[in-house]
């Protein structure tokens, strides 16, 4: 990564000719709209970026058992120009986040960092132009050969059980999960206990039960009783996404794979999605 500081060079004065060399140019008036959602999937350094004309998809994986995706639609960006159908690269997510917050990531209303993110294609660095208060910082982050994201083959036709909850109701249980428990067990059932989170820790077990008629439950579609366990260490990072989100959809398929989809509203009221896939830990009889 290299940094170049220059004064009084607003992003708008970047010549259009410069853009010719890039296969991807994306601009945001408020860099926080990108950094916040990336924070929701920061649990490993390497992030795979895939840009299509629809927008940007950022993928982070852990232990071949967990995958998190953040989707930032093209409309979220003030400018989103892509010259190819698919542009893919891999960067260090921690470094990228540090760059996006290079001006301190102030949350004072009216003060925001403008971002122009450019990528020249295979082998080129990811170039960030960040501007706040007339000061421009240019960051270049080396890109890496993109890995192929794992296909979890999670297909909506195989979904056995699905609930949509207001995130508010899950935040507290997730924040107080017993971390001495190795697993988080999720039970979804058309009959009692409907939707249950369980932990089995050193000092005993804990269950959190949500009735299907709770006013926090926006949708309840459970067809079959399913109990699956997921590694706590894998699911814990999803708490970051939960904290940002306003709604969460919890789905399990016939194999017990878990999909958590978070609806995130950014500072400008626009909607983005974060998605977590997780493999079940073991078969529960």
């Amino acid at each position: 990564m290299c940094l170049r500081f220059s004064a009084a060079m607003p992003l708008s004065t970047q010549s259009q000719a410069d853009d010719e060399q890039y296969v991807l140019v994306a601009s945001l008036d408020n860099a926080r709209n990108l950094s916040n959602i990336l924070k929701a999937i920061t649990f490993k350094d390497h992030a795979i970026f895939n840009a299509t004309p629809n927008g940007l998809k950022v993928t982070v994986e852990d232990s071949k058992c967990l995958q998190a995706n953040a989707f930032i639609q093209a409309e979220i960006f003030q400018e989103f120009t892509i010259k190819e159908d698919l542009v893919g690269f891999q960067v260090n997510l921690t470094v990228l986040l540090d760059c996006l917050n290079i001006f301190g990531g102030s949350s004072v209303p009216g003060v925001s960092t403008a971002l122009r993110m450019c990528y020249g294609g295979y082998g080129f660095p990811l170039t960030l132009f960040l501007e706040e208060g007339g000061v421009v910082t240019v960051c270049k982050i080396n890109t890496q050969e993109p890995d192929e994201p794992i296909d979890f083959e999670f297909c909506s036709t195989n979904v056995t059980n699905k609930v949509i909850l207001q995130s508010e109701s899950l935040k507290e249980p997730f924040s107080e999960l017993d971390m001495t428990s190795e697993v988080l067990q999720i039970t979804m059932s058309p009959s009692q206990p409907y939707f249950r989170l369980s932990t089995f820790g050193n000092s005993g077990n804990a269950h959190y039960d949500y009735p299907k008629d709770s006013d926090m439950m926006e949708l309840f579609q459970c067809t079959k009783t399913q109990t699956n366990r997921y590694k706590m260490s894998l699911l814990k990072p999803s708490t970051k996404a939960l904290a940002l989100s306003c709604k969460v959809s919890v789905r399990t398929d016939s194999r017990g794979f878990l999909s958590l989809q978070y609806l995130v509203r950014n500072d400008d009221g626009q909607i983005c999605f974060v998605e977590y896939y997780c493999c079940p830990d073991e078969e529960v009889e």
Partner: peptide, 11 residues
Amino acid sequence: KHGLLKTHNLS
């Protein structure tokens, strides 16, 4: 609130 039931079984 909202019907959430938290059960802690401690030994």
